[in-house]
Computed example of a mutant assay.
Amino acid sequence: MKDPHAYYINGIGIVSPQKTFDHADFLTEITAYEENVLRCITPDFKNYINPIQLRRLNRMLRIGLTAATICLRDSNVQTPDGIITGTGYGFLDETAKFLRELLEQQEKQLTPTYFMQSTYNALAGLIALSVKCMGYNNTYVSKGLAFENALDDAMLQLCENENANYLVGAFDEAAEVQYFASIRASHFKTEYINSLELFNTTTKGSVQGEGAAFFMLSRQASETTWCKLMATSFIYNPSGKDEVTESLHAFLRANNITVADIDVWIDGASGDAEHDRIMNDLSTTIFSNTFHVRFKHLCGESCTASSFALWLGAAILKNQDVPLAVKVNLHDNPAQLKTVIIVNQYMNKNFSFYLLQK
């Protein structure tokens, strides 16, 4: 039966630092990283992209188009009604190449490809051309809330057209230029660690991640439905833990559920001793008795890491299983997995909540 308040995730495609592109393998094979940069594990691109087209695309466009293609195939939708993406920094590697050539060539005889593939909307446009989607196309570049804004836009669009299918995605790359700039701002750790030991550290900074994730969002359930997205909410630059706590309680009340109704809590802690204070407080107060899951040791920190969390929550509900790699405590899985809440934070300024149900 259709839930009039729900948005259905009818397909997912994700390429990340773990082997997530294969839906048959749910985090059974975990990859650890030693140099504080988590780069995507990619499939054979030729299985998803025309080889002639493939040779003209940069690495991140290949990853993004592959994730979108996996999502389209998973949802059995050939052409979506609209494409909406979110990104924190876009294609920084291509931007750096363009600016470097601009200086070296003294603004003469520049390669247009670097510029065209460095724009924020390059991926959304590429997908639209590839699947002949002439509908709504938009890209949000709002740092730590970029993916949340993309989802919010898609949900508003679906309120006006309940029979539509929107391809909603997020992407960010582990660009070298961003890494060194972020090191100076203490966003990433200066000492090398094993990524799987991220939450055992007590220093400032996290580890750099990247990836692309796409979701087919609709108001109609289908045979490919993963789960229901009941609601989202976000806060920018809260005054402290009290504002986050009050906003979280208001979010639960608005959706007529209590903490006791939640089977799994996905925690967006990043391994940063300073930025994780509010998340750690939530784990000992509101969610002290809720099954606890973390994910950023697998995908790293990025502006759109919450898209990895959304995939994880949907996969937990679809597979009715919580992989060992994401468990905070080695407890048995809950008897029933019906409701998942995601609480993510980015740099302790952007907080977002997602409510998922089976």
Rank of each mutant, 00 (worst) to 15 (best):
L57W: 04
L229G: 01
G268M: 13
I49L: 11
S222E: 03
A181P: 00
V322H: 02
V37G: 00
R100A: 14
F308Q: 01
Y192T: 10
N329P: 03
I14D: 00
N137T: 15
S195G: 05
P323G: 13
F26K: 13
A96R: 06
N10F: 08
A154I: 03
P4F: 12
G82Q: 07
G271H: 08
A122M: 13
A124Y: 05
F287I: 06
V77W: 04
G13V: 12
Y48G: 04
L198I: 09
S118C: 14
V37K: 05
L92N: 01
G300D: 01
S239N: 12
C71T: 09
V37L: 04
E191H: 13
I316Y: 00
F295T: 00
L126F: 06
N137I: 15
N58M: 12
S222Y: 04
E34A: 15
V264D: 01
D261C: 11
Q357G: 03
F21D: 07
M155H: 03
S306Q: 08
F115S: 09
A309E: 06
N149H: 12
T339C: 14
E107N: 12
A335K: 10
E29W: 13
A212L: 09
E191M: 15
C71Q: 05
I342F: 08
Y192S: 10
T95S: 13
G144C: 14
E176G: 01
M347H: 00
S288A: 14
M347D: 06
N50W: 10
A68Q: 02
Q208G: 04
G64P: 05
V244W: 03
P17A: 14
Y354K: 10
N329R: 12
A67Q: 05
S182K: 07
K228R: 14
C71W: 01
C227T: 12
G300T: 02
L99G: 00
R294G: 02
M216K: 01
R59V: 10
V37C: 03
Y192D: 11
S75G: 10
K19C: 14
R59G: 03
T201H: 11
F308K: 04
N348C: 15
N333A: 15
Q178S: 11
A250E: 10
V340Q: 01
T284Y: 10
L57F: 10
S186I: 12
I63Q: 02
Y179S: 04
A273H: 05
S218K: 01
N137G: 11
I262E: 02
A250Y: 10
A212W: 00
L110N: 03
P80Y: 07
F199P: 00
P43E: 14
S352T: 13
G271N: 07
I316H: 00
I342N: 01
I49D: 07
A32T: 10
T190A: 14
A164C: 09
N344H: 13
K358F: 08
L129F: 09
F199W: 12
F147L: 13
Y8V: 05
A335N: 09
